[in-house]
């Protein structure tokens, strides 16, 4: 009989009408991400040995890093990720031997301007060599960097 299929379809949609809601009211209610989710990057500067494996693993040359040699040890002074070119493939995180570079579950990285998207994970001066007592200012810079603040902090 013609129209049977239409009635069947109506039956399905009417049956669903009183069912559970499938969506969440996004800005007010957020879905929790899975542990492996590829969100914003975070860098544990204490673990990082500035080897540059992550920068080499990147297919798009997203990672720009600068380092200085201080007392026979590489010291990371700058670590900038050009997120606007990032593919979020995770090859950099995978290449990190020291577990310093990781993904967080932060998803809202949207900015109004392209330059603001750039992620500065570390930007600090190298400490003076031969252990001078001027460690305090470097320490605070390190803390700021560890917080992984997005470039110039113009969120939203």
């Amino acid at each position: 009989m013609f129209g049977q299929g239409l009635l069947k379809g109506l039956e399905i949609t009417w049956g669903r009408m009183l069912g559970k809601k499938q969506t969440v009211k996004y800005p007010f209610e957020k879905i929790e991400m899975f542990p492996r989710f590829h969100g914003r990057f975070q860098l544990d500067v204490d673990k990082c040995i500035a080897c540059g494996l992550c920068a080499n693993a990147c297919p798009n040359k997203v990672i720009q890093m600068e380092k200085q040699k201080v007392d026979n040890k590489q010291y990371l002074t700058k670590y900038v990720m050009r997120i606007e070119y990032c593919l979020f493939c995770g090859l950099c995180v995978e290449s990190c031997n020291k577990d310093a570079l990781k993904f967080s579950s932060v998803i809202d990285m949207n900015q109004y301007r392209r330059e603001w998207v750039r992620l500065t994970l570390v930007d600090r001066p190298a400490p003076e060599s031969k252990k001078t007592p001027e460690e305090a200012p470097a320490e605070t810079a390190k803390e700021q960097a560890a917080a992984g603040k997005a470039a110039p902090g113009k969120e939203g």
């Binding site: 049977q4 069947k8 039956e11 399905i12």
Partner: peptide
């Protein structure tokens, strides 16, 4: 089954 009911079986679609 739901897709079949909604689309495949629909006479207009066919």
């Amino acid at each position: 089954d739901e897709y079949d009911g909604l689309i495949t079986g629909n006479e207009i679609f066919q």
